[in-house]
């Protein structure tokens, strides 16, 4: 300590002059924050802001491999948007995305909330043990989760099909070990939903548990004195207290589930099967898995997706921004 202090003995007054010749302490103070945010700002600008602008620009031009190689891109008068919005295939993918996303969100929120409530009632050891179990699912890398579900539902040797085949035929039918779950949207999407919900309900459960723990006990006591039953105090104390938390969780889940890519990529074995495409995989397919790639169209859909996500997250953003101002 003394050593450091001695090395820096120069007093307040002469230090600034030494380090920053020519700048008054006042100017330094004014410029300092900009110097400090500059590196982060540059990285964000080059890596994220610029491509956001570029995404808009590309979506308004005919843009393919040639343009990537340097040929001038031609303005196409909102052609991609007009095409996309009148394209039946896009709308069917859009509908599937909404449906799958809604199923994921509904299941995640319901299961997560129920498990959170359950953990709140369990004794400490049980809720800790359950918490560790939840964490294992939550912490599994997305790619590993997708692959193990692919394996669990594998046609011939997968755990699910072998179990189904070992059950009596009158109950579940037979021939499961010839059944491919991943070939059609009717069976693939439910598995996708399970895969995603499996990983996302722990976050909701733990958040709800934290929320429940933060509700002051006096409120329940007051409710009891007023003669409220358990059910009533749940509706009139727990639910209102947790409403802001639910709103945030809901928005986060919608956004996260809207963006699902890796799981579908693995389960469907790539992005070429348009039958089981969702918006993120469709964008990828247009950009990187079709010959020739159609960057313009892909970007138009990407713009639509971004706008949707931002609209959905408006409430979340508003809450966060308000907190900043407070």
């Amino acid at each position: 300590m003394t050593q450091t202090l001695e090395r820096h003995t120069p007093t307040e007054a002469d230090r600034p002059r030494k380090a920053h010749r020519g700048l008054s302490p006042r100017a330094r103070r004014a410029f300092a924050p900009y110097f400090l945010i500059l590196p982060a700002l540059v990285v964000l600008a080059v890596v994220l802001l610029w491509p956001i602008g570029q995404m808009l620009w590309i979506s308004l031009h005919d843009y393919g491999l040639r343009q990537l190689q340097g040929q001038e891109a031609e303005w196409n008068n909102f052609g991609h948007y007009l095409h996309v919005l009148t394209d039946e295939r896009f709308w069917s993918i859009f509908r599937n995305t909404i449906l799958v996303c809604m199923a994921m969100v509904a299941l995640t929120m319901t299961l997560g909330t129920l498990v959170g409530l359950l953990m709140n009632r369990l004794p400490k050891w049980a809720s800790t043990t359950l918490g560790i179990g939840l964490m294992l699912a939550w912490a599994t890398p997305v790619i590993s989760a997708a692959i193990v579900y692919r394996w669990l539902f594998d046609t011939r040797y997968g755990f699910v099909n072998t179990v189904l085949d070992s059950l009596p035929d009158w109950l579940v039918g037979s021939g499961w070990q010839e059944f491919n779950w991943f070939a059609s949207p009717e069976t693939l999407f439910p598995i996708l939903v399970v895969t995603v919900v499996w990983q996302s309900f722990p976050f909701v459960a733990i958040s709800v548990l934290a929320g429940l723990k933060s509700i002051p006990g006096e409120l329940y006591e007051a409710a009891r004195i007023d003669g409220a039953s358990g059910w009533k105090s749940f509706w009139h104390v727990t639910v209102p207290m947790l409403r802001p938390l639910f709103a945030l969780l809901l928005i986060l889940q919608i956004i996260w589930d809207f963006r699902i890519f890796t799981q579908l990529f693995i389960l469907a074995g790539g992005v070429t099967n348009r039958e089981v495409a969702l918006i993120p995989t469709y964008i990828y397919q247009l950009g990187f898995a079709s010959t020739p790639p159609n960057y313009g169209m892909g970007s138009a859909i990407a713009v639509i997706m971004t706008v949707l996500v931002l609209v959905i997250s408006a409430y979340y953003l508003r809450t966060m921004i308000r907190q900043e101002e407070a």
Binding site: L48, P51, F261, I279, A302, V303, M305, L317
Partner: peptide, 15 residues
Amino acid sequence: QMVPVEALIISLFIN
């Protein structure tokens, strides 16, 4: 933070 990388991927690559 809200802009999805899944949407940005094409322009990210081109950029």
